[in-house]
Simulated scan of single mutants.
Amino acid sequence: MPPLDARLQAGLPHLPGVSTPTEVGRARRRGLHWVKAFPASSLGPSWIRAVRAPFPRLRVVATGGLDLRNASAFLEAGARVVALGSALGDPAQLDRLVGLLPGEPG
């Protein structure tokens, strides 16, 4: 049994990485609502907007090359989550992270 089928059968979550609308369509046909846009910094916020147009219920996690300078643009474009990796090791960015949280002052 392919890994995705085994995960779905067991009720385990799956977050496929996508970078094309074809990959998004494949994930949606399998009943997946969440996808990981990778590498988000190369795809750009406009990719999020464009891919969500034909897939309005799609929930996107943007990851890969994001930091506090560009994360808000991905959220504004429709990403539901941004994943910050190496940015979390930068004390200057870490102090400003709270500004990305909903309901918090920016």
Rank of each mutant, 00 (worst) to 15 (best):
E76I: 09
D67H: 00
A6Y: 12
A50V: 10
A77M: 12
V61I: 13
W47Y: 12
R80W: 06
G65W: 00
T22G: 03
P13S: 13
L97I: 14
L100F: 12
P105K: 14
T22P: 02
R28D: 09
P105D: 10
G65H: 00
G78T: 04
V81T: 13
Q9R: 14
V35Q: 05
A27M: 07
P39G: 04
E76Q: 14
R28T: 13
H14W: 12
V35E: 05
P91E: 10
R80A: 15
R57M: 11
K36T: 05
P105Q: 13
M1A: 15
A87R: 02
P21D: 11
L97Y: 12
R59E: 15
V51S: 01
M1C: 13
P91V: 03
L94C: 08
E104G: 09
G89W: 00
W34Y: 12
R49C: 06
Q93L: 03
V24H: 07
G65Y: 00
R7V: 11
L12E: 10
G31W: 09
A71M: 06
D67E: 02
G85T: 00
A53C: 08
H14D: 10
L75H: 08
R26W: 08
L8S: 04
V51A: 05
R69F: 01
E76W: 06
A10N: 06
G106N: 13
G99T: 11
S86W: 03
R80Q: 14
L75E: 08
G11D: 06
P16Y: 02
G106K: 14
I48Y: 04
G25E: 13
A50G: 12
S46H: 12
R7S: 14
R29T: 14
L68K: 03
R7H: 11
A10Q: 09
V18W: 03
P39H: 02
V35A: 05
G64A: 10
A50Y: 01
R59V: 07
A79L: 07
R29C: 13
N70D: 11
E104H: 15
G25Q: 12
A77P: 05
A87C: 08
W47F: 12
